[in-house]
Amino acid sequence: MDHNAQYDTVIIGGGPAGLTAALTLTRYRRRTLVIESPAPARNAASRGVHGLIGLEGATPAELRSRAWEELGRYGLAEPLDATASEVTPMPGDGFEVHTQDGTTVWARNVALTTGVIDLHPDGVEGFAACWGQTVIHCPFCIGEENADRTWALVSDEPRYLGMAATAFKAWTGDTIAIAPPSLPDAQELRRDLRAKGSDLVQGEIVRLHHTDGDLHAVELADGTLLKRQTLLWPQQQRQVPLVERLAEHHGLRLAEDGYVIVDAGRQTSVPGLYAAGDLTGRTWEQGAVPAVAAGAAAADAIHFATLH
């Protein structure tokens, strides 16, 4: 690759948001570079993407392969297998984008579609094997694939735990709540859940008993075994290092909970810098379908901004 190449837009991240933005910009005849880290994608553990018409159940790898086949028809989008390390606004116009392998390119606009980093719990044996299969963060993403099983909702938020008895009946008739021993007002919550046919169990999860990621029991620190087949366990998240550096050094505004703030056109607080996908939305707003919509919206905004 030409280390001094110039593009209309550099997209950082090759998931649903980034690839949709690339396709939209390509059809606007915009020369685009998609930089995607060679590290495993955040959704690599997913058994399939759901809710995208025509792609129901496609694995993340299949989705990317299909996307690049379609992008190849136009010849205006290029992939770069690298980790973006810096995005520097240039005086007057555009950005320099640097990667860890030493590549530097210039672009008039940059779209961040990096996703986020899930912060998995320390010391829970079996968590990694079950993550994305029977330990899920979003019932709307793979609740159907876990239907008719026994569930547990894991959280330290009383209001969220209070949903255990009723909110997930589309997929299961048997859900309990698991909370840490320090949960405030636990007795009141337990009474309420039991009155609705559910329950609250308190304890520290130390092990997930499973067979190749298929959960069958949750072990607590006191030795208690809870026979559960699916855990709805949303994880805390953080931005990737590139986004953190942009916030620290270049004025990229983040919300109080750490997500990137964008306007209706997906532009951030830095002119010419756009963001789409999970890095802009809380857990319940994340997923392939909203990411695709946001990627298209960002591409539209980028195109029309350059017409003025």
Score class of each variant (00 low, 15 high):
Leu200Glu: 04
Ser65Asn: 08
Thr113Gly: 08
Arg47Ala: 13
Val10Pro: 08
Ile261Pro: 01
His210Met: 00
Glu244Met: 05
His3Asn: 15
Ile11Val: 11
Trp284Cys: 07
Val135Thr: 10
Arg64Lys: 12
Ala276Val: 13
Ala186Phe: 03
Trp151Phe: 12
Ala111Phe: 07
Glu144Ile: 10
Ile53Met: 14
Tyr74Met: 10
Met1Lys: 10
Leu25Lys: 03
Thr134Gln: 04
Thr20Tyr: 06
His209Phe: 00
Met163Ile: 03
Ile176Arg: 00
Tyr259Ser: 13
Pro139His: 04
Ile261Trp: 05
Asp199Glu: 08
Met1Arg: 03
Val201Pro: 07
Ala293Leu: 12
Leu161Tyr: 04
Leu76Met: 15
Pro180Val: 01
Gln236Trp: 06
Ile261Phe: 03
Asn109Tyr: 07
Trp131Gln: 04
Thr83Trp: 09
Ala17Phe: 08
Thr134Gly: 02
His209Ser: 11
Arg29Gly: 09
Val243Met: 01
Ala255Phe: 05
Asp118Ile: 04
Trp151Leu: 05
Pro38Arg: 06
His120Leu: 13
Glu78Asp: 14
Met90Tyr: 10
Asp185Trp: 03
Gly281Tyr: 08
Asp174Thr: 12
Gln236Asn: 10
Gly126Arg: 01
Leu193Glu: 04
Ala170Arg: 14
Ala44Ile: 15
Tyr259Asn: 06
Ala276Arg: 02
Gly173Met: 05
Ala165Trp: 02
Arg282Ala: 15
Gly115Lys: 00
Gly203Cys: 06
Pro241His: 10
Leu112Ala: 02
Ala301Gly: 06
Leu246Lys: 02
Gln100Glu: 15
His308Ile: 11
Glu78Val: 14
Arg253Met: 12
Ser155Asp: 06
Leu193Val: 06
Thr150Val: 14
Asp199Tyr: 02
Gly51Ser: 08
Gly54Tyr: 09
Gly94Asp: 08
Leu71Lys: 08
Asp156Cys: 05
Glu256Thr: 14
Ala82Met: 07
His98Met: 12
Thr268Asp: 00
Leu220Ala: 11
His303Thr: 09
Leu208Tyr: 00
Tyr74Gln: 12
Trp284His: 13
Leu225Ser: 02
Leu279Pro: 00
Gly48Cys: 10
Arg228Phe: 01
Val289Gly: 03
Ala41Asn: 00
Arg207Leu: 00
Ala297Gln: 04
Ala264Gly: 10
Ala45Glu: 08
Asp192Gln: 15
Gly54Leu: 05
Ala22Phe: 09
Phe304Ala: 04
Arg266Thr: 08
Leu220Asp: 03
Ser182Glu: 14
Pro121Met: 02
Gly57Met: 07
